[in-house]
Design a protein around this nucleic acid. Structure first.
Length: 401
RNA sequence: GGGAGCGUGGCGCAAUGGCUAGCGCACUGGGUUGUGGUCCCAGGGGUUGCGGGUUCGAGCCCCGUCGCUCCUCCCA
């Protein structure tokens, strides 16, 4: 091993990707249902955005930021969280005057210089939502409902939800705990939020000691926790940040949102839904024999892949392996069908199409369109887990885990 | 930041301080010339995380260092 991974960084390998996509798809699906639009903000921002936005005194700012100077001697920082950047984008694009009410979500890598641990790396991934421009308690309820729905769609419902409201940020610092010390409006807001949660049937526990680590939180703060994680048991954390936009130089604008860690979600999903991720099957493997077979095979493969009307996955041997090895390879790819092409097939323009599950073979013409139709997976049982594509059917197998 | 444990081929493991560091999985090739998932045979791949020390002799012991895991802390 010549190069080691940088501490806190890690590769997500192809075998693990299905779990990530399961989690990411769920976030996107829920964003669609709740009508939140995706926003993609840069990984790099001016350092000051975070020192002012997240807070000078927070752990994130004082000891966890990846800060560096660029060639223009600007102090830049790899984003440690998403909210500050989204708030910045809100102002950058003048939304405060044009379209002050925004419902947004994001998904992507964040960076914090921390001691790596299970479910906590230096480059990690968060998803989150933000609602800007509305102070109504129903928004708090919607945001919490979103978090709740997300856990449900992932099959992780029934976990614990903590909810707490404190007064303003300064108040958190001075007197953590005690819902009695709330300012009158805050108390009313808190009561209203609870009313909504009850009406929506969202279970929650009050935790008077819950204090979140970011300076910008005000009023409502909440967490969703999982019993399946060790010491990193917070799945989602969020709250209201009514002072943030103003702190960044904009007009007074209320905001609320939450963020969750993707790797923790993936850990829990692997734990609880071990059998739900299906391995994708290859629709057709083209096995070739000899030079002529290779020529015909490559041409056919490319034509099949370029078809406009029908989408099938096709692969072909590139290492001039024996037919036997190519069959084994097709098997490893969970190929649904295999077609063997050699000189004979090239000459007559027909080939033998083998069904890898039944073992049956039949003669077929080498015409791309008709072949694609023969190979295209039938729609019988819908494969759970959201296989791509238009077929409601068997584009998954139960071979893998 | 504090505490504990662990680092041996890609992965999972083995090796009373003593021969060329083994095994499983995976990988590559073969089991007559063009057919898979089983099976059989063969093969490649490790300066035992790194650096020092003790010893006639270290993968095993000691020190340091880096990394990983867990707890605590913080959080997503």
């Amino acid at each position: 091993m010549t190069y080691d991974l940088v501490r806190g960084m890690y590769d997500i390998l192809p075998d693990e990707i299905p779990w990530w996509q399961l989690a990411e798809d769920a976030v996107r699906e829920m964003a669609r249902r709740y009508n939140y639009r995706e926003i993609r903000v840069p990984l790099v921002e001016h350092t000051e955005l975070f020192t002012r936005g997240v807070g000078e005194a927070t752990d994130i700012v004082t000891k966890e930021m990846y800060t560096f100077q660029d060639r223009g001697e600007r102090s830049l920082t790899l984003r440690p969280e998403g909210t500050a950047s989204v708030a910045r984008a809100y102002l950058t694009h003048g939304w405060q005057t044009r379209e002050p009410f925004q419902k947004l979500f994001y998904l992507g890598p964040m960076f914090r210089y921390e001691k790596p641990q299970k479910g906590r790396n230096r480059q990690f991934h968060q998803y989150g939502i933000e609602v800007l421009g509305a102070l109504d308690p129903s928004v708090d309820a919607e945001v919490i409902a979103f978090a709740w729905s997300l856990m449900e769609i992932l099959g992780l419902g029934g976990r614990i939800l903590d909810c707490k409201e404190t007064a303003c940020q300064s108040f958190i610092a001075q007197a953590p705990g005690s819902a009695d010390h709330l300012c009158p409006e805050c108390a009313a807001h808190f009561e209203a939020v609870q009313g909504w949660l009850n009406r929506l049937g969202l279970a929650y526990d009050m935790d008077p000691r819950l204090v979140r680590g970011l300076d910008y939180y005000t009023r409502t703060v909440f967490e969703l926790m999982s019993s399946d994680l060790g010491s990193q048991d917070t799945l989602i954390g969020g709250g209201r940040y009514d002072g943030l936009i103003e702190m960044l130089g904009g007009p007074p604008t209320p905001g609320i949102g939450f963020a969750g860690g993707l790797e923790r979600l993936v850990l829990v999903l692997r734990e609880r839904r071990a059998n739900d991720v299906k391995t994708e099957r290859l629709d057709l493997f083209i096995a070739t024999v000899g030079e002529e077979g290779r020529r015909v095979g490559m041409k056919l493969a490319t034509e099949l892949r370029r078809l406009k009307k029908i989408s099938i996955s096709v692969d072909i041997d590139h290492r001039a392996r024996t037919l036997r090895k190519q069959m084994a390879q097709a098997n490893q790819l969970y190929a649904r069908t295999v077609i063997v092409l050699g000189e004979d097939e090239a000459r007559v323009g027909r080939g033998k199409l083998k069904d890898m599950d039944s073992g049956e073979e039949r003669e077929v013409p080498l015409d791309p369109e008709s072949l694609a139709e023969l190979v295209y997976p039938a729609c019988d049982d819908g494969c759970a887990g959201g296989c791509a594509g238009g077929c409601g059917g068997d584009s998954c197998s139960d071979h893998g885990n």
